[in-house]
Nucleic acid binder design. Structure first.
Lengths: 299, 299
DNA sequence: CTCCTGTATCTTATGTACAAAAAACGCTCG
DNA sequence: CGAGCGTTTTTTGTACATAAGATACAGGAG
């Protein structure tokens, strides 16, 4: 059976919408709610029915109105609002990064399914999609082999990354002054500075800033294959940041400063300077990543 | 139920093995056959049972021997020996390239399943895996949108291809004289010349030669992401050659000559020359591909 | 003792079932 | 007559069942 995470997330979101209303206010029409919650009208109707069951709505049809008589709002648990696929990815990455399996070992679908409390179908689909990240590989006879997050992986990853990023950065620098991306870059620069000013408390926030910055650089020259590759980068770094806590504050501070240099280089529009600083930043990011890889196992 | 294409292909292969024996010769042991046919012993035993049923074997256990009393060998039809996934890919590419669906339209899994005579599960898994080729895209609400084989696709594809190939070609040229890849390259050069000599009759053979040549160039510097990307190239060109027959002989002849120049450039080890000739060849391949793309539909 | 076969067990691939969610349709009330 | 609602139809996501095929184990012939 399909999970109803869409409904549950929509319901929780709807509670916030309702909370903004005063008692007796009319409920917005279903189509409006559907657009606002980002789901179909079918789901909105299910949400409304649930709200009604909980007594938060009076009337029916076109005469629905809010009834907020001091009732406590009862949202669904956060965990139930996350699609199965996303949870599996999270669990799988943790399973791999924790070193529960050695590079080179065979992945057992049924095992994982039991461990992650999902059906084998979900695992299988996940592995299929996950294949593109280069961390697992198909065996000719069926099944999957764990390649793992090794130094070799990091090296190959950064070889491509350098090609893509150097190219994108140079294209970025040639954009006309009028492009809105310059404005975005200026804003990101401010965010970097703000984060640097409060680095001791907020160093965790760098992960998402990092991802946003590098993604901004590549939007100057859209290419579906590069975009796809940056999904790998984002995934790897997302979990890397979560997993490797060693020297986290220092690492992030260094990276922020490198980003600021990088941004200044972009503003300078000097190709040589961009090339130079971009390479420096990537080399330092590569070293950081390599230090947290697993020892390469046997093939 | 799982398809038994593995068994059927193994059986057909086994018929060839048996045909090489003389009447009364002992049948090779199961483990040997398994290695020779590239399947597990379980499947070998099933094949042997079938051969026995057809009266091609006398005796049992360790005393099995061939019985070729003039019987006609009855292999399974070729089509039944191809795994479902491969057939689906073929059908899907034809469906797309024939223009049965416009770029931008939504893909209906059930429809395709019926059309291709497979279960929806197979279609679904195929689409998941096919996603990485950049020809389809996920909708946020679930399901897939056909991006299609458009000029935009070809441009983005070649932008990456040029980066990868230039890099690989330069690395190739720096390999020591002793590397076996030079020998492989020499052999491929001969094959190109042979094909050119008989181009009118054999121009179809260029497709696989093309793929083998470009894959050889990239093996000099293995990188899983580049390898993955070349699977896309191979797929696209494989179907492109099958589908676009216009000027095929001329196109292929031009490409062979370009390959020969390319190979000579590699042997020259001159970086400038390699860069120059490689760009020329890729530009010409790009033009060829673009000419056979579909007009970009609405997003 | 070693190679081979017979047998049991495990794992994956594919078909079918069914609920969730989306999309389409048509009615009704203002 | 048109925005909004009730209802029906499609389509997708997940679970489960089962046969194909791989792997592991044990006994026996040479």
């Amino acid at each position: 059976m399909k999970t109803d995470t869409v409904f549950k997330r929509a319901f929780n979101d709807a509670l916030h919408v309702v909370a903004e209303l005063r008692d007796g206010d009319p409920i917005p029409p279903e189509t409006i709610l559907a657009a606002r919650l980002g789901v179909s009208r079918t789901t909105v109707r299910k949400v409304l029915a649930e709200l009604d069951d909980q007594g938060l709505i009076s009337g029916a049809g076109r005469t629905r109105s809010a009834r907020l008589s001091g009732r406590a709002l009862a949202p669904f648990p956060e965990a139930e609002t996350v699609p199965a696929a996303v949870q599996v990815e999270k669990q799988f990455m943790e399973w791999m990064l924790r070193g529960d399996a050695k590079p080179g070992s065979v992945i057992n679908e049924l095992d994982l399914a039991r461990q992650f409390r999902v059906a084998t179908t979900v695992i299988r689909e996940f592995l299929h999609g996950f294949h593109r990240f280069g961390l697992i590989e198909r065996r000719p006879s069926g099944g999957w082999v764990l390649q793992g997050f090794t130094a070799g992986f990091a090296l190959e990853l950064f070889e491509i990354r350098e090609m893509f990023e150097l190219r994108s950065a140079k294209v970025f620098a040639t954009m006309p002054e009028t492009s809105p991306l310059w404005q975005d870059l200026r804003r990101l620069r401010e965010e970097h500075i703000a984060l640097l000013g409060d680095i001791d408390a907020r160093f965790h926030d760098f992960s998402s800033l990092d991802s946003r910055f590098h993604r901004l650089v590549i939007t100057a020259s859209p290419n579906r294959f590069i975009d796809g590759f940056y999904e790998i980068i984002t995934l790897i770094f997302h979990y890397h940041y979560q997993w490797n806590k060693r020297d986290e504050r220092e690492r992030n501070e260094v990276a922020i400063r490198e980003h600021l240099d990088y941004i200044d280089a972009l503003f300078s529009r000097s190709e040589a300077q961009i090339d130079n600083i971009c390479r420096l930043h990537l080399a330092s990011a590569k070293q950081t990543l390599i230090r947290s890889t697993a020892p390469s196992g046997s093939a």
